[in-house]
Computed example of a mutant assay.
Amino acid sequence: MIRFNRENLRKDHQLIWFTLDFLMLGLLILNLALIVFDFFYSFAGVQGLLSEYVPIVTDVYQPVHENFIFYDLIFVSIFLTEFCIRWVHAITVHTYSRWYFYPFIHWYDLVGCVPVGTLRFLRLLRIISIIYRLQKYKVIDITQTKAYGFFAFYYDAFMEELSDRIVVKILSGVQDEISRGSPLFDRIKHDILYPRRTMIADWLSERVAEATQESYMPNRGALRVYLEARVDTALQQNVELSRLRFLPVVGPTIQSTLEEAVGDIVATVIHQLLDDLASSRNHGFIEDVVNAFLPERTTGEGEEQGEDEANEALKNLINEILEEVKNQVHVKHWRGAL
């Protein structure tokens, strides 16, 4: 059900134009209904049925059908008069920067006035434009109607399908360009990523620290027990170390001491490494990683080979990111509304 907001209609300074909109909306609907009826009436079979069952309709409408162009021109003259009035008003209030822009922007109003064949149905666009204008100024509310919901759903579905195909096509082209080593990859690397190495390193450093703190700190004790157990198992399976137990008197003691010392050293080193990653001390390490991916331009043969390897890794990284973006684009959100 269409809702009318009489308060906005009374308060708005464009009351006269809204009144004209409603008048033109009624005339357009009447005119299109007449066009559709006349189209079907032109068939002999329809005329025969009407003559047999409702002869009064034939008697009344037959003169209209024979002079349909004349009656349609009456509507056209009203539409053109309204168009000229709005054009003059647009010039007066400087709606557009040039006086002759109005007929080009509202071309469907003019073309729809041509009383020839299917051009008449362009008047439907005029109905849509009037309804849109009334909705824009909150004079009416059509968003709660079933018709609006129906068309809005399929419009969104169509636009999503269309935009998804376009985006995937563009991203696939970008991936091809990057894989072929086009100037696009060099521009991404040297003009976009390389000048932002510090920012990337700072961002990665913060993310690594946060991730390490969230996953490592709560499990610090369990991780130490696990590492010591793994080291003990590895040492017990070591042939050279197992021979120490055969030493007289001190053999078992030395073996046990070594196992405890090695286990403690390994656990301490790994804990220290994770502590560093969980703090701001990881910045230097992350910066070295970023610099390895985004090295400065080099000229040496060995350095060029290293840069090629870094470039290949960076290409793979960009392609994987684009592939994930394409996978996300393929998600059909409109289907969730079914």
Results as ranks from 00 to 15, higher is better:
Leu273Gln: 03
Glu160His: 11
Asp109Lys: 13
Glu52Trp: 06
Leu322Glu: 07
Ile166Ala: 08
Arg133Gly: 02
Val325Thr: 11
Glu7Lys: 13
Ile2Pro: 00
Ile166Phe: 07
Glu303Lys: 13
Glu296Pro: 02
Ile200Ser: 03
Leu273Phe: 05
Gln305Leu: 14
Leu184Phe: 14
Ile127Asn: 04
Gly173Asp: 03
Arg196Pro: 04
Gln305Ser: 14
Ser205Ile: 01
Tyr71His: 13
Pro195Leu: 09
Ala147Pro: 00
Ile128Ala: 14
Val54Tyr: 12
Leu171Ala: 08
Leu34Glu: 08
Phe4His: 10
Ala152Val: 08
Gly181Ser: 05
Ile318Pro: 05
Tyr137Thr: 09
Tyr154Leu: 01
Ile200Trp: 06
Gly300Gln: 08
His94Ala: 12
Leu274Thr: 01
Trp334Glu: 07
Phe75Thr: 09
Val249Thr: 10
Asn316Ile: 10
Lys315Gly: 07
Val88Glu: 08
Leu134Trp: 04
Ile200Phe: 05
Leu122Gln: 08
Ile170Gln: 04
Ile188Ala: 07
Asp141Thr: 00
Leu184Thr: 14
Ile85Gly: 01
Ala90Ser: 15
Phe18Asp: 08
Met217Asp: 13
Glu7Thr: 13
Leu247Arg: 01
Ile166Gly: 00
Pro248Ile: 10
Val269Asp: 01
Asp141His: 06
Gly306Thr: 09
Leu50Thr: 04
Ser172Gln: 05
Leu277Trp: 07
His94Leu: 04
Trp87Tyr: 15
Asp156Gln: 14
Val329Met: 07
Gly251Met: 02
Asn311Ala: 04
Val266Trp: 05
Val111Met: 09
His65Ala: 14
Tyr155Pro: 00
Glu301Val: 15
Ser280Ile: 02
Asp276Trp: 00
Phe153Glu: 11
Asp186Gln: 12
Gln328Ala: 14
Ile56Ser: 12
Tyr61Cys: 01
Phe37Asn: 02
Asn8Trp: 02
His65Leu: 05
Phe104Gln: 06
Leu50His: 04
Pro195Glu: 07
Asp202Gly: 01
Thr143Glu: 12
Asn5Lys: 08
